[in-house]
Amino acid sequence: MTVDKGNKLARASLDNSSSSQLATDPKLDSGSQKRIGDQLRAMYDELMQQPVPDRFKDLLDQLDKKNGGKEGSQ
């Protein structure tokens, strides 16, 4: 009955690494890794869904129009 207790296990496995895991580079258990990843993506998705500020559309529109004359200095 050494199973379960997901997170404790993960930490324990860092110490007595019977696996071939490199002791110098411990890995997070997959459950924690998933929770971190989910939170990261949730935060990121929220940012991605924000509307694009007009300044960027304006910027690209302007450059679109006046391009050709402007950057010819090289």
């Binding site: 997070l28 924690s32 990843g37």
Partner: peptide, 28 residues
């Protein structure tokens, strides 16, 4: 990831409270 997990107590089963039972069950 490891640092975030420790900052957010994600890997600290003691801090998860009653919910840890559920989580352990789900993971087990």
């Amino acid at each position: 990831r490891i640092r975030l997990a420790s900052l957010l107590n994600v890997d600290d089963i003691e801090d998860l409270g009653p919910d840890s039972m559920t989580r352990a069950a789900l993971q087990g």
